[in-house]
Every structure is written in structure tokens, then in C-alpha cells.
Design a binder for these strands. Sequence first.
DNA 1: GGCATATAGTTGTTTATGCAACTAAACAAA
DNA 2: TTTGTTTAGTTGCATAAACAACTATATGCC
Lengths: 146, 146
Amino acid sequence: MPNNQFKKGELYSFITGKASTAIARRLQKNFKQAGIDITIEQWSVLYHLWKEDGMSQQQLCDATFRDKPSITRLVDNLEKLKLVKRVPSKEDRRMNMVYLTKDAEQLQEQTMELANQTLNEALEGVTHGQVEIAKEVLQMVYDNLK
Amino acid sequence: MPNNQFKKGELYSFITGKASTAIARRLQKNFKQAGIDITIEQWSVLYHLWKEDGMSQQQLCDATFRDKPSITRLVDNLEKLKLVKRVPSKEDRRMNMVYLTKDAEQLQEQTMELANQTLNEALEGVTHGQVEIAKEVLQMVYDNLK
DNA sequence: GGCATATAGTTGTTTATGCAACTAAACAAA
DNA sequence: TTTGTTTAGTTGCATAAACAACTATATGCC
């Protein structure tokens, strides 16, 4: 008998992720107010390229937990915005390496600042210890299901 | 200086909600395996109607944390599937009250069972106490931002 | 009553997701 | 070299989300 049995009324909000929806909406709003016209999904791709430029689309799939069609189209849209460039790999011609443009590099500092600020709004009144446990739980859920 | 300042590398996954994405995908998969052809978003509307049948579309917006166009289209699709019916309110002719059909009532038990099972898969190895804290944190985040 | 305003719901447009089917290149075995 | 399989990426289709603009009804105030 599992010891985490949810009561009906509690289960729903845990599944539907209202909290992460709320964070994403607030971050999007904060981007918009700052005059930054990219979506959170596009930003999530840039985020990984800032950590390591020149990832393949497949690597972006793994990093962002999205499927291949999603990454194809996000990269399409980021190319239209002139924020990334696809460069065919020389070693393996099936692969596209995705590189940041100058424009995208300039977005890093400001958007990371806004993301931090958004998280601080979100976590107002939550203790450091609680946050650590919440992150652990979310990581375990992810590991259990991925 | 906020005491919840995130380190760069940690912040991202908290925002993008990989865990709730993973839970939703797994639940969708479990529905499909059981031969239940509804989306998680449609299920989330039915979930609230099972608790209280005959809600208005606006009430469904508040309950599901979705905007009005989203609910309009979810109800459209649920009507096509013959799972709900719109009934114009007699007191206020602007409102549609949304009612479950017999078909939808029959889905309740099986899908709630699948949802519980999915959460148990997700929370394997997580203690009851950790889950309680995670729920609290997510609730506080939601309250801070909604 | 008449007018301004608020509320409930719909429609159009763009972006994103999930799934299946597809192309092209790489690789492995004979 | 050919044949079969795997891997990287794209395309088509249905569903859903966010936002803005819209219609219709209700309400509050003069």
C-alpha cells in the first residue's frame, strides 16, 4: 500500500502544475514589460545555449524535455527572430548544431535577471529549507517518470 | 537581499516545470493504454464538474486557472465528444451552465483511479512529509502569483 | 427610461505540444 | 556492395494556450 496516497481534492492541482503555469505567466509578463519579445519556450532553448553554445537539436530535446518536432519549430522561430543559426555538422551530416547570434548573447544578462526576480516574487515567504525539499521532490518525480 | 536567491543552474527546471509535464504525459499515456481517449486538459475540466456539476464557464476558468477562450474551446471539444452539454442559464442569459452527460459520469471512477496510480508512480520513494512540504510550497507560489 | 460600464462568452491569430509518418544520413552485418 | 537498422531532423494534423478584439446581456447611476 503506497504511503503517498492522495486525497481526491489534493491530487488535481499537483498534476496540473498551476504553480509552474503561474511562474511562466509571470515571467512572460515581466519579459513583455521589459520590452523583450520572446516566449518562455524560446527563452528555455536560449538558456541551454548560454550554458553551452552549439548544441545539436537532439541535445536540446534532452535538455529541455521536449520532443523533436517541438525543437524543430522552436529553432525555426528563433531563426526567424535572428537569435540562433543552424550550422550543419561536418562530422555527421544528419545533425544541425545550433549557435547563438550576437543578439541572443545580449539577451542573457537581462533575462536571467528577470528570471531571478520572478522566482523571488514566486517564493516570497517560503523558507530556504522548504524550497530545497520542494526541488528534491520535483527532481525525484521527474526521475521516476522520465 | 532575498534569501531564496537561486543559483543559475537550478532556477531553470523550477520554472519550466518538467515534473508536472512528466506527470501529465504519464497520465495521458495511462489514459491511452486504458482506451480512454480524452486529453489531460479535457479531464481537468471534467474533474471539476465531478465535484460540482453545472458550473458556469467563468467558474471553470477560475477552477482550472485557464482563460475564457481556453475554456470555450475545451467545452467545444467536450461537447463534440458528447461528454458535456451547455445549458443557457435562466437567471442570467449571458451564462452557460456546463453539465456532465451520462458518458462523462461513467468516466469518473476509472480516470480517478488512473490519476491516483500515476501519482503513486511519480512519488515512488518520496516520503509523506516531503510531499506535504512540496504541496505547501507549490500552493504558496500559486498564491503569490495568481 | 437612457447611458456608461462591467461581465460572460466567442472568434481570430500566433505559438507551442503530442503523435505519426516521413526523408536522409550513418552504421553494422553479410 | 548491398541490405537492414538506427539516428537526426522535418512535416502534417489535431489540440491547446495567450492575447486582443468582438457581441450580447446585465447592472448601476442620472
